[in-house]
Design a protein around this nucleic acid. Structure first.
Lengths: 221, 221, 221, 221
DNA sequence: CATGAATGAGAGTTCATTCAT
DNA sequence: CATGAATGAACTCTCATTCAT
């Protein structure tokens, strides 16, 4: 049922197998309902080996969070090109985000659902990642203000709130896109981009933000 | 510490005491870490009575989710007056939402953190509430379109995505507002209203949406 | 195999059954080798009940030590009549000691072998009992000195050493008497009394201490 | 921290290193709490080598007991000179005993605390040593009787009991001396010699046994 | 109804022990 | 020989759940 069983692998490889199994199990069952037995079996190893390499359920969970957080952050960062205008940067970042979460739903569940829900040590790991991304977004918002030749008199907390709202909307749309068949990462990104950049008011007034045409995948149906 | 112990109360009252205790315990400890012992003690009743009335931990948790979901939905619905213009309706709905979640943090934690995190049966309950609120928001968006004298060529799914984004942003800001000292429900609502209605683009261009003045609570300190 | 299984007993009774089983198991297997499973089975209850009543293996062990220490101390104290001369008091105390340890070998093993061997918390319990008995013996030694009309210029530490030696000899003889078939408590007491009171020197010189004749059991063969 | 690591040592040497580490670990942690990992690390060898040389934890423990028992027996035997009068022989033997146990506390803990406490196979090893020493003491008692020109009508079992008592008192005093700062081996031996030879009766009557003056170590500070 | 007594099932964790290299 | 990789079996402890009274 789990990975193909093969003996005597170097530690680093086994550890990744374990983390794979753990992310999947934590993501699907939840932190507390996931049992070390199940994780070990899915990883194709015995339980003592899991403990030998990763010490405890808490440490294993933390390792999962760290790995997934790093992967997600890296994916988003890789998508953003700092030379582009602010709206294009946001667009690229969102696309990377939705693509990554769609391809890695268990990892996303670990971060989004499990890490926050099970106490400080884990929530702190998640918060660290969230703040890193929120900082990115905040930079974007300020850059957009500069591009609009305005020194935004928005107080710092207001900007933080906006970033929070944007990240929350993205998180929510990621879950929605994963759960709704036929919604692509690109479409989710477009929806959010419209929402965030133009605002409902402009949208309703017929002034949507328009995504740049890309050669690789046609948008018009 | 728990409810005042008194004998022979009608079943409905006892049940509410149990749900109160359960919501508090689930909200603070989490679903799995909460023990039936603790809930029974906090409710001031014996454990077998909890089982007599609510059958099992799962059923008890489901009952909590249902009650809190109904209360939140009702609060939002009560805040919205269908005669107002769309943006005012949204504004009132958001205010009601942030006020309710701020006053009822354990209930909100049960919904936002616990219900989604512990498997299908519970997540479905949460999703039902979410969709009810999203439907409300969808109506608002369509109403806004009508007010703008435009038949929006936005496909149904696009509107659903916008509603999803708005709800997600609200959820995220509720947690942020609860966790950040000094942020009131009104401020959270204003931040989100700005973000949603005007959009980042307009905001950066210096065209924010402005909340209506209200007599009931002075803003200047 | 264990006690007759009967359900629904009052807590106090069940607790004693558990302690009985625990003393027997700890005494025979040793603290660490004894498993809670075995103790529970021998007590005729389920493991969770043991934990419900006695909290943990450590607490259970401590409870065993306390119970057995109290029983032994009480037995010795009950045997000693303060009105008798010092040598008779010592004689009675030793008889009580050997009788009790012979009738209760598992309890004695718990005290003598297990309590000292498994770390401070337990050793301290044992030491407390040991010091209580040593204090009794010390009083006896000083009383003997008074009876001999001498103010013993033995330093305090010397007296402590003598008490330690006497208690150690008694402990050793108790194990020996239990292990050697046909050695009665009375005989063990006589041997130790001779050794302690007369000393090897006097014994070899043909001047033994002679136990008082008792009606119940004839001494001469 | 452990032994200096160096390759290719003859088997006998490696084995002694392992036994050194094992005695130390068993003595300080106890048999069950001592882990083979810790012992191997302290010995500076790999775990499989420990198994190659010593087969199992049980065998390793048995080997420790045997080595320490032999060392202690040898030390006592070496201290006794058969030409001396009986009391002097006893005195020398006790001094050797207390000196050895004081210098080798871990080995003594293995014998005195661990060997007896963990089941028959080990207790038997300890008992064997104990009987060897007790036999030595028995000879001494009989020699003392001969010196007193008396054919003691003490039955064989009585003599065995006396030896047992003496050995037990010595064991107890060894632990006491090790645990009480400032008590030397010589003082412990003197206390026991007084107790055993003169008896409490003579001691209280002001007729102690007096240790011979020795040139080797000055007593006055 | 309310309660104390009781448990089946399973959780995380550790350890002595072995093999392939 | 030495080592890293690996495990079967056992342990302590917890919890949702149910009777008998």
């Amino acid at each position: 049922m789990g990975a193909v069983k093969s003996k005597r692998m170097p530690r680093a490889v086994r550890e990744q197998q374990m983390l794979d199994a753990a992310v999947r199990t934590f993501g699907q069952r939840g932190y507390m309902a996931a049992s070390m037995d199940e994780i070990a079996e899915l990883a194709g190893v015995s339980k003592p080996l899991v403990y030998l390499y990763l010490n405890s359920k808490e440490d294993l969970f933390t390792a999962c969070i760290r790995r997934e957080a790093a992967a997600l952050t890296e994916a988003v960062r890789a998508g953003v090109h700092p030379d582009l205008p602010a709206d294009r940067q946001l667009w690229e970042g969102l696309r990377a985000f939705f693509t990554h979460t769609a391809r890695n739903p268990d990892g996303w569940a670990v971060l989004h659902l499990q890490a926050r829900t099970h106490g400080e040590p884990f929530a702190a790991e998640f918060t660290a990642m969230r703040e890193e991304i929120a900082a990115l977004v905040t930079q974007l918002i300020l850059a957009a203000a500069r591009e609009a030749h305005r020194d935004p008199d928005l107080p710092e907390r207001e900007v933080a709130g906006l970033a929070e709202a944007l990240v929350g909307a993205a998180e929510s749309l990621a879950a929605w896109a994963n759960a709704t068949p036929g919604v692509t990462a690109r479409q989710a990104a477009a929806t959010l981009m419209n929402f965030a950049w133009a605002g409902l008011g402009d949208l309703m007034a017929g002034r949507p933000w328009s995504p740049p045409e890309e050669p690789e995948r046609a948008q018009a149906g």
